[in-house]
Computed example of a mutant assay.
Amino acid sequence: MAFLRKAFRGLFKALEWFAMICMVVLTVVVFCDVVLRYIFKQGFSWTQEIATLMLVWFSLIGMAIGVLEKIHISIEMFTSHLPEKVISIIVSIDHVLIAVFGGVMLYYGIVIMQMTKSSTLPATKMPSAVLYVILPISGLLILLNALLVAAKQEKKIFNEDETSGKENHNA
């Protein structure tokens, strides 16, 4: 179990780094494009496609991370006055619905990739499936993360010390 926990923690860190890299690339590409267009009156044709790709990838990986860290949007105004047992049932249903959503993303992401594999993006000439490859990956991660969070309900998946790189040896 410790090996699985360590492997999952490594995957989680890799996802965070991947999302950060996507955001940095997005920011640099858009900044350069704005400077080129407004100062030099010309730009590259591929910047919009790369920016779109990075935004989509960042958003969907961020969604998977949000499920794992339980930072997705929820409205507690309605549930805060309910009994603890009812809240527990609602939270369990929530995790099941998130897992189902991840499964739907996984399935239809593969379908969309199959439909777009023969077409190319106009400026970069990359296969259109490159834009959609993140759908099944993110769907699988959301599915797994929702199941993991449901199994560890009401507990943090990783202690704050573990996510910052310092192991918590007291646990």
Rank of each mutant, 00 (worst) to 15 (best):
F31E: 02
F31T: 13
F31W: 08
C32S: 05
D33L: 02
D33T: 08
V34R: 01
V34T: 03
V34M: 03
V35C: 09
V35H: 01
V35E: 01
L36E: 07
L36N: 12
L36Q: 12
L36D: 10
L36K: 08
R37P: 02
R37A: 10
Y38I: 08
Y38P: 01
Y38D: 04
Y38G: 03
I39S: 04
F40R: 07
F40Y: 12
K41G: 01
K41W: 06
K41L: 09
K41H: 09
K41A: 04
Q42T: 13
Q42G: 09
Q42Y: 08
F44L: 04
S45C: 02
S45F: 08
W46E: 06
T47V: 02
T47R: 01
T47E: 11
T47I: 00
Q48P: 00
Q48V: 09
Q48N: 07
E49W: 01
E49M: 03
A51E: 00
A51R: 02
A51T: 00
A51G: 11
A51V: 02
T52Q: 07
T52S: 09
T52R: 07
T52K: 01
L53S: 09
M54Q: 05
L55K: 00
L55F: 10
W57N: 14
W57Y: 13
F58Y: 11
F58M: 09
F58Q: 11
L60D: 07
L60R: 01
I61T: 13
I61Q: 04
I61K: 05
G62K: 02
M63F: 12
A64E: 04
G66D: 05
G66T: 08
V67S: 07
L68E: 12
L68H: 05
K70C: 07
K70A: 12
I71Q: 14
I71P: 00
I71W: 07
H72I: 13
I73E: 02
S74V: 12
S74G: 09
S74T: 11
I75G: 07
I75V: 15
I75D: 15
E76W: 03
E76P: 01
M77F: 13
T79F: 10
L82S: 04
L82Y: 10
L82V: 06
P83K: 11
E84W: 05
E84Q: 14
K85G: 04
V86P: 04
I87P: 00
V91A: 14
V91M: 14
V91K: 15
I93M: 13
D94P: 00
D94F: 12
D94N: 15
D94M: 11
D94I: 06
D94Q: 15
V96F: 13
L97Y: 09
L97W: 09
I98P: 00
I98L: 14
I98S: 08
A99H: 05
A99M: 08
A99F: 03
V100Y: 06
V100Q: 03
V100K: 02
V100S: 02
F101C: 14
F101D: 00
M105R: 05
M105Y: 08
M105I: 03
L106E: 05
L106V: 01
L106G: 09
L106K: 04
Y107H: 14
Y108G: 02
G109Y: 05
I110D: 06
I110R: 07
I110M: 12
I110L: 15
I110Y: 14
V111M: 09
M113L: 11
M113P: 02
M115R: 15
T116G: 00
T116Q: 14
T116N: 12
K117G: 06
K117W: 12
S118D: 15
S118Y: 13
T120L: 14
P122S: 14
P122G: 11
A123T: 07
T124L: 15
